Computed example of a mutant assay.
Amino acid sequence: MNRKTVLFLDNTYPKAYQSSTLQEQAIGGTEASVVKTAQILSQQFNVIVAQKYRIDNCVESEHLQFIPKFDIKSTSPDFIIILRKFPLVKEMRKQFPKAQIFLWLHTYKNLEYAFKKHILAKTNCHIICNSKTHQQDTNRLLNDTWLSKIIGMTAKKIPVHFCYNPVAAPNLKPIDRNINKLLFFSSPNKGLDQVIKCFEYLRQSMPKLRLYIANPGYKKSNNKSLNPQINILGSLPHEQMMQHVAESLCVFYPQNTFAETFGLIYAEANAYRTPVLAHDIGSAREILHPNNPLVDANNYQEIVQTIENWQKNLPEVSYNPQFSDDFILNQWLGLLI
């Protein structure tokens, strides 16, 4: 089999990571998705993950390796997947003129992102998003707003695709769920202050509730043990984090300031049959199970009622096979073959 080569380029994450990192320590959702996607693609491609802050090589198999960015000069990729960083598009096009380049976005962009359309078109760079919701918003900005249409008079339409993030189906075991345990396991910049404010309101009428806060570790939090009812878990390896997810009444995420492009927080919680109390923002409605209702993050009475209802009768949510390895592989094959 004549395998083509896929190069992932991470110029952002401040630490080296590889497959073993997922079991050893907390890691950002984006980086976890890169590792899992690289593992999946290595079934049919030679996959290289290059990282700016890596200093040594990590060869995991015949078809998967993690290398320092400065070593990419010795590679000959057919496909280059740039994580987040638009300025690298021109650099990679100059260094690898024959490769197909993709820019894998992990955030929503503002109107001014349309100004990047010229370079994206000139370099024949495609965009990869994390969900249909993310794809539609990005396509609108690059191809369908008044600004993008003006720019489009001299630049072709930019192809915008989406591939879901991989989520493994868990090996579910009987577990005692604590109906008073609420869990927040996201970066603190994702609405944590709003979440804590809501929790403190809930405690006025539901004093038995406890909030557990975990952090993937790439954003520092100033939140300490704010009160005895808030437990700071810190950064936990994935397996330990999922144990907390399985034990909790719900993932507690009533915030409307940060829009997830995919939301591992949604997909992983539902996979463990744990609902997510979340606002209808970003990809929430697309990624969450149909039985997982959404709330208004500013309507505290609705949130109180939802918690009380869930304590009596938890909604039945489950794993989504669209996040499986096979489904993800087929999505990427649609882009790379």
Rank of each mutant, 00 (worst) to 15 (best):
F79V: 04
F66G: 04
I80Y: 03
P87G: 02
L105R: 06
E91V: 14
F79Y: 15
F70N: 15
V89I: 11
K157I: 12
Y108R: 06
K157V: 13
P68S: 09
Q65Y: 05
E60F: 04
N57D: 12
I101N: 02
I67T: 04
I119M: 14
P68L: 09
R140L: 13
Q95E: 10
K85A: 12
G152C: 00
T154S: 10
K52D: 00
T154F: 10
C58P: 00
F66A: 04
T107Y: 10
S61Y: 08
K69E: 12
F79D: 05
K98D: 15
H106M: 12
L147F: 08
Y53C: 01
K116D: 10
K157A: 11
K109T: 10
D144E: 15
L88P: 02
A155I: 06
I55C: 09
C125G: 05
T107F: 11
Y113A: 15
E62A: 14
K69Y: 11
I158C: 01
Q135N: 09
L88I: 07
L103E: 03
K156R: 13
K85M: 14
I119S: 08
I82L: 13
V49N: 01
Y113P: 07
K116H: 15
L105D: 02
T133L: 03
K98A: 14
N130Y: 06
L83N: 06
D144I: 08
R93M: 07
N124H: 11
E112T: 15
R84G: 02
T138M: 11
P87N: 05
T107A: 14
W146H: 11
I128H: 02
T123W: 08
H106Y: 09
P68Q: 10
I128G: 00
D137Y: 13
T133A: 11
L88V: 07
L141S: 03
C58Q: 05
H118V: 08
C129T: 11
G152Y: 00
E60W: 01
F115P: 04
N124D: 14
Y53P: 00
G152E: 02
Q100H: 10
L141H: 01
T138S: 00
E62T: 14
K132V: 10
K156I: 09
S61N: 09
Q95N: 09
M153I: 13
T107Q: 12
V49R: 00
K116R: 15
N110T: 14
P68H: 09
I127F: 10
R84V: 04
W146Q: 13
T107H: 12
F96I: 03
C129V: 01
R54T: 00
A114L: 06
Q95R: 13
I72W: 02
R140I: 06
S131P: 00
A155C: 07
I151R: 09
Q65V: 05
V160Y: 04
I72Q: 01
K69W: 05
K69C: 07
R93I: 05
N110G: 12
V160K: 07
K132T: 10
Q135K: 15
C58F: 07
I55E: 13
E112R: 15
P87F: 02
E62C: 07
N110Y: 10
A50M: 05
H118E: 09
I82H: 00
L142C: 04
S74K: 12
S131W: 01
C125Q: 06
L88W: 11
M92C: 14
